[in-house]
């Protein structure tokens, strides 16, 4: 569990991994989106609107996966006091919130031509909006605690408890009658033709790589900031100590 506790060890794998994830993510997601926009056939009922699928589904997945990352980091923070956990949670929050918002926006742009409405207060849509507000709360809370020097365990508790919304989002279309259709994929079964499935898989993997790269970059930035601050504090202390000795010597 403490394998990556050491920031040096974390950086030794994060540094080379970042550009690879970025390149792979940009290539996969870009290729899949281009394919989705130009090569994918129109759907039997939805027609051309189906192309929004290749943005909407990865965004929904990463919105939820982002909170699972926060929850995992929060668990590591609370139970094992893992030194990098707070940084990992904070780093996942902004990309998670971005993809949740993207899911809501693309969903709205899809809902208007497909369902005939931009927004409905339905179980799936509402629980996804709740997720966005949870992200905004977590971002505000973690930034405030970091700035005030308060314990990072406060946002961690929030991150752990907020995870309950993730299964609610997932099962909202099964538990309640919803305007949103049930998932197209279940264990071993698919209700989606290969022509849609393959670019969807590529785009989901691509955006996941980009998400991971963004989390790594934000972790590196937060780590560098804390290291720089610690160094400044140490130097200030040393300078203070020197000044004190000089004063004593002069007295």
């Amino acid at each position: 569990m403490h394998g990556f506790a050491n920031p040096k060890r974390f950086l030794s794998f994060a540094r080379p991994l970042t550009p690879w994830l970025l390149a792979l993510g940009l290539a996969l997601a870009g290729g899949a989106l281009f394919w989705g926009l130009t090569r994918v056939p129109a759907e039997r009922l939805q027609g051309e609107t189906v192309r929004i699928l290749f943005l909407h589904v990865p965004a929904a997945w990463l919105g939820m996966a982002g909170w699972m990352t926060i929850a995992g980091a929060s668990l590591a923070e609370i139970v094992w006091r893992h030194p990098l956990a707070a940084i990992a949670g904070r780093a996942a929050a902004v990309p998670g919130a971005f993809f949740t918002a993207l899911c809501l926006v693309t969903g709205s742009l899809w809902g208007r031509p497909a369902w005939g409405t931009w927004w409905e207060w339905d179980g799936r849509l509402t629980s996804m909006l709740v997720l966005l507000f949870l992200y905004l709360g977590y971002i505000a809370l973690s930034q405030a605690t970091a700035r005030e020097g308060a314990s990072s365990r406060i946002p961690a508790i929030f991150g752990l408890f907020g995870v309950i919304n993730v299964p609610v989002i997932h099962f909202s279309v099964t538990w309640w009658y919803s305007i949103h259709q049930p998932p197209s994929f279940s264990l071993g079964k698919s209700a989606m033709a290969t022509a849609f499935q393959v670019p969807l898989l590529a785009s989901t993997m691509g955006f996941t790589c980009l998400f991971a790269a963004v989390v790594l970059m934000r972790m590196r930035a937060l780590l560098a900031e804390t290291q720089a601050e610690a160094r400044l504090r140490r130097r200030a202390r040393e300078a203070d100590g020197d000044a004190g000795q000089l004063r004593e010597a002069g007295a």
Binding site: L22, L26, A29, L33, L37, E48, T49, R51, I52, L55, H56, A59, V94, P95, F98, L102, V105, T106, L109, W110, R112, P113, F207, L210, A213, V214, M217, R218, R220, A221, L222, A224, E225, A228
Partner: peptide
Amino acid sequence: PFVIAAYAIGVIGTLVLVGWSWLAMRRAE
């Protein structure tokens, strides 16, 4: 128009997120 709007928002938003995180990381390091 709906498809194009969704793709424009998605692509531009993702590039801004990636670029901003990259610059922030470089600056901090």
